[in-house]
């Protein structure tokens, strides 16, 4: 019997050798940060029209080249006047989603308590608009990149600004931000942007772009992306934010009117498997 209680149950070094701690993380070693995204979403596309914004993503989350999750909603509604579209790492997207929902809960603690009289301060003007949300989000992203611990996403914020005018802006893992009449992340920057820029080349063109025109351009862009982006799929989500309609979210859209004529002689495309 060993008389030292702290030795009980421990293997003797002379029998088993010293404990091999090499598998354990070195306490003084480098802190683990995201080095690369794991499960990823592809492009986000969005464009403004005269009284709102259309935004879309497909419903796929890829694991490298594997189409891993086929029913993942990458558009998130923040409130009645802001929608986010996430590209990049899905777990970071989930983190941001939780962060933003806790923010929205905290905002709503005082949503009506701060407006002294609900008659003279409208409910809507008290809550965060898309512009506020984008500012907050871009600071989170920039802080994390400055800590060398990035949130591996490219995000589009679509909605209305403080004046109720259409707002569309981007934020990414580096904390870079920019705004334009149409925006697209990832592959969409190459394929969807030219299509959308044809409709809204500048802010002036936004004023005479209808909701139908914008929605068609975005849906067409989603189709082209499905044709040419290998990490995309034909089920997608689209949201329309406008002053009148608030947020209309459609999360299970099917790409209509596909044409695989160009692949006439190529086997393995579309419904033709071999």
């Amino acid at each position: 019997m060993n008389h030292f209680p702290q030795a009980w149950g421990r293997p003797r070094d002379d029998v088993y050798g010293a404990y091999d701690a090499s598998y354990l993380h070195d306490q003084n070693g480098p802190k683990a940060h995201t080095q690369s995204p794991i499960v990823t979403g592809t492009s986000v596309v969005a464009m403004k029209f005269k009284d709102g914004v259309v935004i879309a993503t497909d419903n796929l989350a890829s694991y490298g080249a594997l189409a891993r999750f086929t029913n993942v909603k990458r558009l998130r509604q923040f409130n009645t006047r802001a929608v986010l579209g996430f590209g990049g790492d899905v777990s970071d997207m989930q983190y941001l989603d939780r962060l933003l929902s806790s923010l929205s809960i905290r905002e709503n603690y005082s949503a009506y308590a701060s407006s002294a009289d609900s008659a003279d301060a409208t409910e809507a003007s008290a809550e965060l608009n898309a512009k506020n949300l984008h500012t907050y989000l871009s600071k989170v992203m920039y802080k994390r990149r400055s800590d060398f611990n990035p949130l591996w996403n490219a995000i589009l914020v679509a909605g209305l600004d403080g004046d109720g005018k259409p707002f569309l802006a981007s934020a990414d893992l580096l904390g870079s931000t920019f705004s334009a009449p149409s925006l697209a992340t990832g592959f969409g920057a190459h394929l969807a942007q030219p299509m959308m820029r044809r409709v809204v080349p500048n802010e002036a063109a936004v004023a005479n772009t209808t909701r139908e025109m914008a929605e068609k351009a975005v849906r067409d862009a989603m189709k082209v992306l499905f044709y040419r982006d290998a990490r995309s799929m034909d089920r997608y989500s689209i949201a329309i934010v406008s002053k009148e309609g608030g947020v209309e979210m459609m999360e299970d859209e099917q790409l209509e009117g596909q044409s695989w004529a160009f692949a006439d002689r190529i086997r393995g495309y579309g419904t033709q498997v071999n």
Partner: peptide, 30 residues
């Protein structure tokens, strides 16, 4: 007889194929 009480190595291991925790390059350019 000696017993292994330490759960982590006292000295930081030199990076090499045998050590699990060596220097690593950041995959992120800020």
């Amino acid at each position: 007889p000696g017993y292994s009480f330490r759960e982590t190595p006292a000295v930081r291991q030199a990076p090499g194929p045998s050590s699990a925790a060596g220097e690593r390059q950041h995959g992120f350019y800020p």
